[in-house]
Each structure stands twice: as C-alpha cells, then as structure tokens.
Design a protein around this nucleic acid. Structure first.
Length: 994
RNA sequence: GCCGACUUAGCUCAGUGGUAGAGCACUCGCUUCACACGCGAUAGGUCACAAGUUCGAAUCUUGUAGUCGGCACCA
C-alpha cells in the first residue's frame, strides 16, 4: 500500500465529514440500543451574523470531544446545533446594507418589508457560521438545527411571555433605562460596559437662590462658620448654590437641588427655590439622605428623567420628571428653544458657555469618570426615563438560588470562582429590561386598544377575544435576544409540542425513534424533550454566565420544573501571544480557519483541548505545530504498521490459540506466550484508557490530551514499535518453515476469519509473525479509538486503512451501521490487563538501554560501532534481560550481552548502575577517554549524593520518623539503601580507574 | 470601594502536603530501511517575596508586591 510520508490534513478533512453527516452518524437515531442512556449537549447558539473565532473553536472542541466520547461509549447522544438571530447586530448589518444598496433607511421601507429583507439576508449570508462548524468536525445533528426566530421557538417565546405576564412576573413600567442613542433602543444592564472616559470633567455650576437674602438675615453664625470652612467658596454670599455635574446639559431638565438634611451649610436653604438659569423655571431645594455632604459641593442637581438616583429622589419628593432629550440624544423642545435639536455634547458646551457668560460657572475640574457604553456600538449610554417591559426577577432569582443552595447545581467547572460569582450576582439581581426598540426579533405579544389598555396573548385572535374588539395595535417592540436564548435548552427540543425531529432526520434503517427517556424507560414516540431534557453539560465562556447561563437555569426551573443542565464548564479565554484579549479594534485576533489551513483541524483541536479547563492562555502557533507533528507521528506509526501488515488484521476480542480465551472489553487479549513488550504495551494501553476516561469524566481535557500524547509517542512509538520492529519486519523469521502457499494464505487471525459469524476459531497454522503484526495493529486501532474524540479526521482516515476493520468493531448500539471509527467502542481499560510486573520489568529494560545509550553519547561512540554489554545482577533481572536480549541488542546497538554474577571486565570500560542492584559495564578498549569517564562517573555520584543528603537529613529527624506515616518512612529508607548501593558501586568504579 | 484569580525552566503552561513536570526553544550526536513535522543523549528552576501552621510547604494560612478579571459607585 502506497502511503505518503507526511500527513496531509486537508485531504482527510475533505470527505469524511460529508459521509458522517450523510450516513446519519450524528443523529441520536443511529443508536439502536433501546436501553441506551441519553447524553445531550446544546451548543451556545452563535450569532447568525458571526464568524468563527478561537473562543468558538475552543468551546466547540470541548463539546465535540465529550459528545464523541459518550457516543462511542454507547450513549444515545444529541449534540444540538443552532443559531441565534442576534437582534441588534443583524438589524445593524441589514440596515447598513440597505443604505449602501438602496440608499434607504428601514423607516423608508417599513417594518414588514424590512423584516423580509432580514430573512433574505439570513438565508443568503447566515450560513457562514454553520459551514465553519462543519469545518471544525463537530458531530452535531444537523437534522435538528434550530434558529431562534423559527416558528417553533417563537411559539415558546410567546408562551413564556404570556405565562410570566399572567403571573405578574412580567410588567410594563416607567423607569430610567440604559438608552443607546445610536441603536435607538433600550439595553439591559448586562449589555452596558463601563469604560473610563479619557477627558472627564466636573463642572461646578452656580444656581441663584430666590429670596436668598431673606433666608440669610439673622443667620450670621452660619456665615462666620463658613469663613473658617475651606469650602466656603461653594456657597456664594450673593445667594447662589453651587452644584457639581459631569453632564451640564442635563441641567435643562433639573427639577430640584438636593442637600443632606443634616448639612449645616445648607440647612437654611431647604424649602427655598432656585431660579434655574437658561430655563426660566423655578425649582425647589429639597433635603434627602441620599446626598453625601462630603462629596463635591454637597448639593446635587436633580434630573429625575435622566438619572437613576435622581429618579428615585424624584419619586420620593414627587418631583416633576422632565425629559429634555430625543431618542437620538439631541435636545428636545422641553430643553428650550435655544437648545432644541442640538446634540447632547454640543448642548453641553453651549450650557457651559452660557453659564460662563452669566458668571455662574464657578470652575471646571478634570475628573476621572467611568461612563456606560453600548457593548455593541460603543456609544455612550444615556440614562433616560422610558416606559418599557421588565421581568421581575425576585421569584426567578429565588428558584435559581435555592437550586444552588440545596443541590449545588449547576456544578461549575472549575467551581472556583464561578459558583460564588454566580451566586453573588443572583443575590443582587435587578429587574431585567426585555423590550428593545428594534424590528428584528420576537415582537412582544401585547396589544393595545384605543385607551392604551394592554392585552397580552399568544395570538392576535386571542387578544381580540380578550379585548372584545379587533381594533388593537400590537406593541412595536421586540424582545431582548437573550429572552429567547434563555429558553434554548427546552424550546429547541420541542417544548411547545410540535413533533421533532423533522422527517429528514430519519436515518436509513433506524426504524422508529427508540425514544428512551433519561430515566431509561422506553417511551416510543415521545418528544426529544422527554429524552434529552435536562441536558448533561453546558460549555461556555464566562462572559455569558449572567446573560445566558443564569437565565436558562431560571426559565428551566420555572417552565420545566427541572434544571436545564447538570454541569457547566466555563472555559478560558484565548489570548493573543502577548497575553492580550483578542479584539476587533486591536486587530489581534487569530482566525481559526487560517490555523486549520496551516496545521489541520485535528492539531488545532488538540491544542485547544490541551489547555487547562477554565484557564486563560496565550495563543502560540508553536503549540499547534507540536500537535501537527503529533498528527504526523500517528500517521507514520500507522504507515509503518500498514507496511508490515501482510497476513495480519485488527482483532476484536480474538481468542488466541493456546492463550487466554477470555475476551477483554477492549479486545486486546494476549497469548500465554506473550512477550514482555506485549504485556507491557497492553498494560500501558489499559492504564491510559482508564486514565483518559477518568480525566474526561471530570472534564480534565488537558489531562487526557497529555496521557494520549505520551502514550502514543513515548510508549507506543519510541518503545513498542522499536521493540517489536524486527519481529514484524523480517520476512524470514516468522515464516520459517512455511511454504509459499501458506505464506499467502488468508490471515490466520484475520478480521474476517476471527469475526466469522459462527464464532468458531479456525484451527489454522500458527504464524508468530502474523500474530505479532495483528497485535500491533490491534493496539494501534485501540489507540486511534482513544484519540478519535480529539482528532476525528486523522483517526477516521487511518482507521479506514487498517486491515480487518469493519462494523464488527462497533459498539453494539451501532452494530448495523456503516463502518466508521466514530461508532466503535471507546476503550475504558481493563484492570485484568494491567500488569505491574511487566511495567516494572520493562522499566528495567528501558533503564538499561538508556544507560548504554548515555555511555555511547558521552563517549562519542560512532553509531555504527557495536558494543558488548556486561550485566551483573540478581537472577530475576538477568532472566528479564536474557529474555529480551534481541531487543536490547538492537536498541542499545550491542552485538553481545554477557550476564554474570559479578562483573569481570577490563579497566578500559564505561560503567553504570541500575535500579535494583544491577551494574553494567561496556568494554571500550581503545575508545575510552579515562578523563571523560571519570568525570561522567563523578557527575553521577554527585547527583546521588545530593539526594542522599536530603534523605539522611529527613531520616535522622526523629520527629519525621515518629510522626510521618510508616509507609512513607519505609519508602525513604528503601530509597536511601538503593542510592547508597548505587553510589558505592560508582565510587568503586571510579577508584578502579585511578 | 467590594470580590476574585494568577505569579513554577528562556517562552507558553501543567501539577501538587512527602525526591519539581511537559511542549517549544537551547546544547551535543545521528541521512539507524514509519516519521528530520524525525531519532538518541544532555543541560536548564532557592515553584514572586515575607511570616506562620506542620515531622515535612512550591502545595495550607496571613501579609506584601506585581499582573489580570468581575461587580458596584461616580452629583
């Protein structure tokens, strides 16, 4: 078989995905086991306007690893994909295009036409992100793909809205809200980002007090007190009161000035009025505890319609709420003719100028101020009094808090700090503004009659019925995009009752749905909701814990009576190589698609999964490169096995002739005559499999990646392949005594034969070479399965090339499916195949070979020169070395191994000691540099001495010996003895050289 | 202002109450018939600093410094 020397990732990525998808492998219906447990994950729906970034790639990889892993374990898996309609972003995008193409605004064409345009846009460009998800190799079920604006989901939105309204949990109210003057919509608190202003100023404005003189008369004490007060300047003796503000333009809407009731400076002014400059209005001076005397001038201008705190004060004092701005943050008529139409910042300048002219501008100070910005368009938010729809959060919040308190759910990974942050946030939760002044989104199902009475209903007809008239107009606003996202785990699974999935999801040969609920009871014909809700785990970034995670928990508890997911994995943030957050403005983003192109999808997935769960990390191409190299290593190891696969095939639980008949779950069964290398690699494989499963159970993806990397590269490639290389490559050894006909006979343990339907083992002629070849193929095949969830493309590409693979290797739940590695059984590891003795013996062999190689390297022995190795040691070790003589000779490049009780070698030898009281010598007559050898031995002795000193110190500490666990003390004593022996031997060797 | 995380080899990062680990980079040697995206052998760290708990601390506690993040307030 001709196989290229290097792995070409793009070639493998080209065709497998299409086949997987077309064959229905991603759909849960592929699972034919009526008793299979369900496993489900919903994707955090990316914005329809979005393109793939590294954050997606990371979270998608983790979800796909889990899904593929569980699928291979036989779970009935659903990885549900879908896209969010992204109200503001999408509306902006289409508005921009409309302007460019037709020079029109949405208002020009009207709501209906505009909405049609958005749908057209969505159908044309909205597929970008889903194409990219395919590119990533995600095993999502496309037959169940969802979109938040589709009818099923919209119905859920209306249902939830109506029910919450009926319970009084949704209300319409007038509040100060976050207004984005550019997007012209209200935003929730979570969509507002606080940012430091570059050149913040604090303006001190003097307001003339009416009847000032009168108030002052007979109040000389206060005045003299002020003279000692350094802040006396703030209270003008000519009867003005100074207020400080960062937004002077809002003074046009002032309806009071507030001071602290206990503030001696102003006590006498409370109840008086101010002639508000530039407006001709008179406003009262009021007292309110809210005012902090120590801050600013201790007097606060009150603008109830443009500031949250002022609004509250206004409520308390029954102040007028004067709105002085339009929805685009220009001043309105109420601001006065001189200012109407001016932008808020132009108005600010003009107000300041006017005050200056009137001699009422006391001073302007530089001032550090953080201002709220629109998360999306970065425009400075204007707090504005407005009538909006809100969700009352008290009860919802309590549901979520109770779940956390009583059941520690959802479980966050990592738990610190997310559990606490989540809980604290809930405790301080305020009502959620859910209406948005947009056209793209779920229009609020509320209708008004001529008298502005509200009728909330699931349909227009229902509303008409309620109102007893059809003269109703629907609320213009749509709902916050996160409102529909909050329902995602159940709305996507058919909560409102329509049958899901759609017909095209029927997999050939899958028959009925095999609907099995999470509790395992068969309930054919039930909806996905019954089978897959609650979902198992949510994977997302920490930026949407509040926006999304918490709200799903609340709506899930409220409407399903059950949590939406058990676990929440919060992944880290991918930073650029300088540790900075990636952002469009910095233009320091790394495009996953470029990385895919350069290093392959699988290598990228490994690099992402290989980062510790929840921890931010700086992106390094070098890291992906190392996994690209790893992919190539796997490719070439497989290439090697295939080049030597004649007469062999992958085994699945084959009974070896004359060997152990018991089949392990993972299919690797050793013959009684198995070599050390075989027993060792099988042990390593099973240990690795166990550890990988354990790591994935606790979402330690990086741990699994490390385990697989080192198992495959170090154990399998560096040692096992090298150890068995001669055995499987030499064309004579294994086939000795066989005639030509027999050499060409079908594989003795070939997949076809071994997997024959009747299960009868063929009594064929044993062929040790074919067996060895089958063995390595079988180990390799198991390793590929372990790697598959992380590296789906490479493993499928290689697996399909292995001789003897078929759907007989599949998990029984997928027995009749077309052959693919993604439906094989995931190895879970078998304790009975973990062989500590083999591992310890192999460690000795490895140590021996490494020490000899070290001698070769340090003594500059040419690679072609063959050596003799003299080994003295206990019988047990000698037997191990003797039975692996051929391998040792090959890997240590020796032509002779002498095993003795004690060494008897020429002085001109290089020496080393092994663990377990063995020593070795390599005669180097004419090659040895005595000076070098002395230095080498000396170096080794010094290393041992350092450790010995530490051990002595510890063991001579009576407290340690007394209080430490006995096992620990014994361990150190053993270690000390070992080291003492080794050091003594090395010292003797060193002396012998002198 | 409140809360939190991080600080380990040149770089990027794992790890953890009981002999400090990986990848990359570095040094030396290899055209060894799967792979130079490779093979072999080395070198490299008082685990930010200080105090405490402990027989034992890089790991637990407290404090300090630096870096980063979340929340709140901001007249």
């Amino acid at each position: 078989m001709e196989i290229p020397k290097a792995y070409d990732s793009s070639q493998a990525e080209e065709h497998h995905y299409a086949r997987w998808e077309a064959s229905g492998f991603f759909a849960p219906e592929i699972n034919q086991d009526p008793n299979a447990e369900a496993f489900s994950i919903v994707i955090p729906p990316p914005n329809v306007t979005g393109t793939l970034h590294m954050g997606h790639a990371l979270q998608h990889t983790l979800m796909d690893v889990l899904t593929r892993w569980k699928r291979m374990l036989g779970y009935k898996t659903l990885f549900l994909v879908g896209v969010d309609h992204a109200g503001i972003s999408t509306q902006l995008m289409v508005t921009r295009q409309l302007k460019k193409d037709e020079h029109k605004t949405p208002r020009d064409i009207g709501r209906e036409v505009f909405t049609v345009k958005v749908w057209e846009w969505k159908n044309k460009y909205g597929g970008e992100i889903t194409r990219q998800i395919r590119r990533e190799g995600l095993s999502v079920d496309w037959t169940r793909e969802r979109f938040t604006m589709e009818e099923n989901l919209s119905r859920s939105v209306r249902e939830v809205f109506v029910r919450l309204y009926e319970e009084g949990w949704i209300y319409r109210g007038t509040r100060i809200v976050n207004w984005c003057p550019k997007d012209k919509t209200v935003l929730s608190d979570l969509e507002v980002k606080e940012e430091k202003a570059k050149d913040g100023k604090l303006y001190y404005l003097r307001y003339p007090v009416k009847d000032g003189e009168k108030g002052r008369e007979g109040d000389g004490e206060t005045r003299s007190g002020e003279e000692r007060n350094p802040q006396s300047a703030i209270r003008d003796p000519q009867s003005t009161i100074t207020v400080a503000t960062t937004r002077p333009e809002t003074m046009l809407g002032d309806t009071a000035v507030a001071v602290h009731p206990e503030d001696e400076r102003y006590k006498d002014l409370i109840g008086k009025t101010i002639a508000l400059p530039l407006t001709g209005r008179e406003i009262p001076i009021i007292a309110d505890e809210y005012v902090e005397s120590a801050f600013g001038t201790g007097a606060v201008k009150i603008t109830p319609a443009h500031d949250t705190n002022d609004w509250e004060i206004g409520e308390r004092h029954g102040l007028e709420k004067l709105i002085v701005m339009n929805d685009d943050a220009t001043m309105n008529a109420a601001a006065g003719a001189a200012f109407a139409g001016l932008d808020r910042f132009a108005a600010r300048e003009k107000v300041v100028e006017a005050f200056d002219k009137l001699g009422l501008l006391e001073k302007v100070e530089d001032y550090d101020v953080t201002l709220p910005h629109c998360e999306r368009c970065k425009t400075i938010i204007e707090p504005l009094l407005s009538e909006q729809w809100f969700v009352k959060m008290n009860e919802m919040r309590d549901l979520a808090l109770k779940l956390m308190r009583e059941e520690n759910s959802p479980r966050f990974f990592p738990e610190i700090p997310h559990k606490k942050v989540y809980t604290t946030w809930l405790e301080n939760l305020r009502d959620w503004t859910i209406s948005r002044q947009l056209w793209w989104g779920h229009q609020i199902p509320a209708w008004y009659d001529a008298d502005r009475n509200i009728y909330v209903a699931r349909t227009k007809e229902e509303a008409f019925e309620q109102a007893g008239t059809d003269k109703l107009t629907q609320d213009e606003d749509v709902l916050d995009t996160w409102f529909s996202s909050a329902l995602w785990p159940f709305s996507t699974l058919g909560w409102t009752g329509e049958e899901v999935p759609s017909p095209k999801s029927q997999v050939p040969g899958s028959g009925d749905h095999n609907g099995v609920s999470k509790t395992g009871t068969r309930d054919s014909g039930t909806r996905d909701l019954d089978i897959f809700y609650p979902t198992d785990v949510l994977v997302t970034g920490r930026d949407i814990i509040f926006l999304w995670v918490s709200r799903m928990v609340m709506t899930g508890l409220k409407f399903m009576g059950e949590r939406p997911f058990d676990d929440v994995i919060i992944h880290g943030t991918v930073l650029d190589k300088n540790g900075q957050r990636m952002s469009k403005t910095k233009n320091n983003g790394i495009d996953p698609l470029v990385v895919f192109e350069k290093y392959g999808v699988d290598a990228t997935r490994m690099a992402l999964a290989g980062s510790a769960t929840g921890v931010d990390f700086a992106w390094r191409d070098e890291r992906v490169e190392s996994f690209r190299n790893f992919a190539n290593k796997i490719w070439n190891a497989t290439r090697f096995c295939l080049m030597n696969s004649e007469g062999a095939s992958v085994q699945n639980s084959p009974p070896y002739e004359g060997g152990v008949a018991a089949a392990s779950a993972d299919g690797v069964v050793l013959p009684a005559t198995a070599s050390l290398a075989d027993r060792w690699i099988v042990s390593r494989l099973n240990k690795t499999a166990k550890a990988v499963n354990r790591a994935l159970e606790t979402y330690q993806f990086h741990e699994a990646v490390q385990l697989l990397y080192h198992f495959f590269w170090d154990d399998f490639c560096d040692w096992y392949i090298e150890l068995v290389k001669d055995e499987i490559t030499s064309f004579d050894a294994g086939n000795e005594g066989l005639g030509d006909a027999e050499k060409n006979s079908p594989p003795v343990l070939g997949g076809v034969a071994a997997a024959s339907a009747d299960g009868v083992v063929r009594s064929a002629i044993r062929n040790p070479q074919s067996e060895a070849r089958s063995r390595i193929l079988t180990i390799l095949e198991q390793a590929l399965r372990l790697l598959h969830p992380f590296m789906p493309f490479l493993t499928e590409e290689l697996w399909q090339k292995l001789p003897g693979v078929s759907n007989a290797l599949h998990n029984s739940a997928y027995a009749s499916s077309e052959q693919t590695i993604m439906l094989t059984t995931f190895p879970t590891g078998d304790d009975s195949l973990i062989d500590e003795q083999a591992e310890s013996e192999m460690a000795s062999v490895i140590e021996l070979i490494t020490k000899v190689r070290n001698i070769r390297a340090e003594m500059n022995i040419k690679s072609g020169d063959r050596l003799a190795i003299h080994i003295a040691g206990e019988m047990g070790m000698r037997i191990v070395f003797a039975s692996n003589e051929a391998q040792i000779k090959k890997l240590a490049r020796a032509d002779n191994i002498v095993l003795t009780d004690s060494l008897d070698v020429p002085k001109a030898s290089a020496r080393a000691v092994l663990t377990g009281n063995a020593e070795i010598a390599v005669p180097l007559e004419g090659l040895i540099d005595f000076e070098k050898e002395r230095a080498r031995l000396q170096g080794q002795i010094e290393k041992l001495d350092v450790e010995l000193q530490r051990l002595n110190a510890q063991l001579s500490n009576a407290n340690f010996v007394e209080k430490a666990p006995k096992g620990k003390v014994d361990e150190l004593r053993d270690r000390k003895g070992e080291i003492e022996n080794q050091a003594a031997t090395l010292r003797q060797n060193l002396e012998a050289l002198n």
